[in-house]
């Protein structure tokens, strides 16, 4: 995803002189060097100083620019939280924060580098838009929107590199603020976001062998949340699975349960989140998710318990 970001931002940087990129000693690979070399004025590396990265971006935006701040997700949101809240959100400035390597993607680096409560934090701030594209194609469309259409601050949670595209044959078009159907199905639907989309495809394939057609929805916009779209899905399917790489508090699961309650919907919602825990466990991304209870088999077994 980060390569796609670098590619798209370079393309828009060429067209639009208001686009600036700020990084805090972490840089997306690939085309970002093109951006840096061609527009050195509009590329700022603040070094390991995330508070100034956000504050400077706000200053640029006050003069009409559209800055993108890019670093590892934890350091993009938690370290400079008050700058995000006051400088960007209170002043409602069109600055996009790219939180790279979110969730447990930096698996071996430990909890200092895991971003597992960012949606709770980011969605709580007034004026903030929160995006979680599920693959490089959605990442591209989300970045385009931020570069051209956003009116205020955006926090965009992304993976790292090597993610596959899952949305090339998507049923719905990508539209900010709209729940997006990726795969058709009946009776069972999965709602998820971000890189966990790959696990939803594993589940779909495994359930297919059991004779179920599972629909998959990408909830790429967490705020503003498509409440009507979600209510429709909750009504349409017998079983709705919500999966997210986020702690149980303040993520998508809470918001979906609230929609279900508000609309008095009877369909069964199964939800799977990370544990409310800092785990002291190292391994690859998938192994960490598994340690938190997130694996396709665990999810399927809990929905269809073996007798």
């Amino acid at each position: 995803m980060r390569d796609k970001f670098a590619e798209v931002i370079y393309k828009f940087g060429k067209k639009n002189k208001q686009i600036a990129v700020l990084v805090a000693d972490i840089s997306p690979a690939g085309s970002i060097n093109n951006f840096k070399n061609e527009f050195p004025d509009r590329f700022i590396n603040t070094g390991v100083s995330e508070q100034s990265m956000i504050g400077i971006a706000a200053g640029l935006a006050l003069k009409g620019m559209r800055p993108f701040c890019y670093t590892i997700a934890t350091f993009s949101l938690y370290r400079p939280f008050e700058m995000v809240r006051v400088d960007l959100c209170y002043q409602n400035l069109p600055v996009t924060i790219i939180g790279m390597g979110s969730g447990l993607v930096y698996s071996t680096l430990g909890s200092t580098h895991h971003t597992i409560e960012d949606l709770a934090v980011a969605t709580a701030i007034p004026n903030m838009t929160v995006l979680c594209p599920c693959d490089p194609m959605e990442m591209k469309l989300a970045t385009e929107w931020c570069a051209t259409k956003s009116k205020g601050p955006v926090y965009m949670r992304i993976g790292k590199r090597g993610e596959k595209d899952f949305t090339s044959n998507s049923k719905d078009k990508f539209k900010i603020g709209k729940l997006r159907k990726i795969v058709n199905g009946s009776k069972i639907a999965i709602i998820t976001y971000g890189t966990l989309i790959s696990m939803s495809f594993e589940i779909k394939d495994k359930l297919k062998k059991k004779g179920y057609n599972t629909a998959i929805y990408s909830c790429h916009t967490i705020k503003p949340l498509d409440e009507n779209g979600i209510a429709k899905v909750l009504k349409k399917y017998e079983k709705v699975i919500v999966m997210e790489e986020h702690v149980p508090n303040g993520g998508l699961k809470d918001k979906i349960l609230a929609i279900s309650f508000k609309n008095n919907i009877k369909s069964k919602v199964y939800y799977f989140t990370l544990k409310d825990k800092f785990i002291h466990f190292y391994g690859n991304h998938k192994q960490l998710l598994n340690k938190h209870g997130l694996s396709s088999n665990k999810i399927i077994n809990s929905i269809f318990p073996k007798k």
């Binding site: 002189k17 600036a20 004025d41 509009r42 700022i44 508070q51 100034s52 956000i54 504050g55 400077i56 971006a57 706000a58 200053g59 640029l60 935006a61 006050l62 003069k63 009409g64 620019m65 008050e82 700058m83 006051v86 400088d87």
Partner: peptide, 17 residues
Amino acid sequence: GHGLALAVGICKANKIK
């Protein structure tokens, strides 16, 4: 602790423009 970074951003934008 916010004003100076904002000013840095504004000054940088002035340079760019």
